[in-house]
Amino acid sequence: MSAGKALAFHSYKGGTGKTTIATNLAAFYAKIGMRVCLLDCDLYAPSLTTYFRKTPESYLNNLLAGEAEISDILVDVSSELGVKGKLLLGFSSPRKEDIHEIEIKHNMKWQLAALRRFLAAKKELFSEYKIDYVFLDTSPGIRYWSVNCIAAADFLCLTMRINDMDVAGTKKMVKDVYESLTKFGSKCFIILNKVPGASPIQKFQEKANERMLWEKDIEKNIGMKVTGSIPCFCDVQFNKHEFLSVINQPKHGFSKSLRAIANKINVINQRFQVDEE
């Protein structure tokens, strides 16, 4: 059995940068030679088809419905990105009928059968495709499929901004949901996104020691470790079509922040595997 791990990228609110972080981390790991699979599990608001400009033959929705195998939905983008490792993508359908179906049409029996197919597919990615990391890019909040993803994952990457609304909601979500998963071995950490620090305006530029102070404050408030902070970069934020900065702009401050986070996740993974042994 492969020692691969599943990471869910989750948040309390939308717009925290889950997809941007998940896609760039996935691409970075593939770039350094790892085997990564990124699944768009935001079935209610899919975005990877637009991000990668792909129209696959089958979607994750087909797999959940029992109409497709995991091999049918994967798209290998390794060679077009020129990465040393492997990057496989699984897309969710952006068709409004498919989104509507997941949201409303199916009953609990169907959802449970779909969940079993999803878990079997995740397992196959490790056993058959020898994937090191399966990234589950989830929808925000406590919705059926976002909860399924975080329960299916080994690591929960909680992305958040530092405004009051996000902090209060995240704190409640951690208490209500995350704590029932950590007692069975899930590891959770926070990635702070769009934090001050990269502003051209002098008064918004934060020094490293100042950043550490409010990282500590968030850790104390939420009760979870902060693995990294990503400053808010206007050019990333307002890009008309943002696309894999870690590949296209490896020297960009955003890419550097992502690399630091990727290294920390690898360390967490190594410790996790030692604990398992």
Partner: peptide, 21 residues
Amino acid sequence: FDTLDCANTYKKFKSIYGNSF
């Protein structure tokens, strides 16, 4: 269960969904 990982994941789902899972 097939693997220990399946057993742990099952416990997680059970703790969230209770007997409906």
